[in-house]
Design a protein around this nucleic acid. Sequence first.
DNA 1: CCACTAAAAGCAAATAATTTGCGTTAACAG
DNA 2: CTGTTAACGCAAATTATTTGCTTTTAGTGG
Lengths: 199, 199
Amino acid sequence: MAAKENPRPGGRSARVQASVHQAVRELLVDMDRADVTIPLIAAKAGVTPSTIYRRWGDLQELLADVAVERLRPDMQPIDTGSGRSDLEAWAEQYAEEMSSGVGREIIRDVLAAQDNANAAKCCAFTREQVELLSERALARGESFPPVDSVMDQVVAPIIYRILFGDEPTAERVRGLVSGVMAKDAAVTPPPPASERKSA
Amino acid sequence: MAAKENPRPGGRSARVQASVHQAVRELLVDMDRADVTIPLIAAKAGVTPSTIYRRWGDLQELLADVAVERLRPDMQPIDTGSGRSDLEAWAEQYAEEMSSGVGREIIRDVLAAQDNANAAKCCAFTREQVELLSERALARGESFPPVDSVMDQVVAPIIYRILFGDEPTAERVRGLVSGVMAKDAAVTPPPPASERKSA
DNA sequence: CCACTAAAAGCAAATAATTTGCGTTAACAG
DNA sequence: CTGTTAACGCAAATTATTTGCTTTTAGTGG
């Protein structure tokens, strides 16, 4: 049971949550993850440890809660003109962010928690980004592989390699993209095309 | 720093390790993971807690150490007659084992540890199995996709889905296999073929 | 605007886990 | 067989976690 979304969204409760989250983020900047403890976080956030224990349960849940926020995409994928190069650009940036030291730790924090709601959420964030790319491409009248295929054949391999100790290079990422474009573009040829203007 | 491979393989040290591992496995059978503690394990294993702390560092490392052993393949992939159906059979079984409750927990334990040597090891186990399938197929004179492709396009999506909260169905697994066979079989057409008999 | 209610926070005592110093055991080398 | 040292056991010291109770305060209805 991680922190609920909005048990009491007003005032104090929200302030405590924000303060604790910020304390965690700040501590993680210049400390090893293994040295971060709940009493430490509590002291820095100006709350009592029992508040954190009652609300988050344990350190892993708290870290997962903080981590998932950092995984929330902060901007739209850049528009490069074509679906394929949009996907390439997005995937390369995604791989780079995720394979950085910070990225790896964030992923690990999300996955280490008992509660996998956070993991699902983080996966959903990624999927939304891919859906956005897809919609953009289809709106242009281009073909684009099914979102599931992109998740399976581009996102999954990137994350798998990161988790299991290997770093995906930009070149390899391009290879993944090229694989999914080659295979599934044929499966989904220009569908409805433009659906609002030329009706 | 997880337990070293063989710091002093003889007698006592090995006995302690075996005893601790077994205690962990037994406890995990009928307890929630969140309730398993090091003092508990120590008591069951008949060692003092400080021994465990000194050797493994913390609970997560110990769990990861135990988990990776359970991930070691215990048998050869079954031989069904063709590379494709071998891969299909293997992948389905792999997906099933990994997506069971136990399987998920094991994967999580491996990934949650700071030390990612265990994760790498577990990935290597899987890769070895795939390599075995590949060698078998090539020895038969069949084509078979590159091992990396299978890891990226079959293994990675299975694990990704499991980790992020979604269960890969047998049908989907077959789809993944069929994807990798279709795409990469062409890239690797019957190579050396049979290399020992007809030379 | 003023109670009322209950969720969330604070505080402090009790319990449990972790760390650490030091003496002991036992694997391995010579 | 003896010396050396890694690994273990024990127990005290430290630190983290849980818990009962009190206080604060957001949300609600008079």
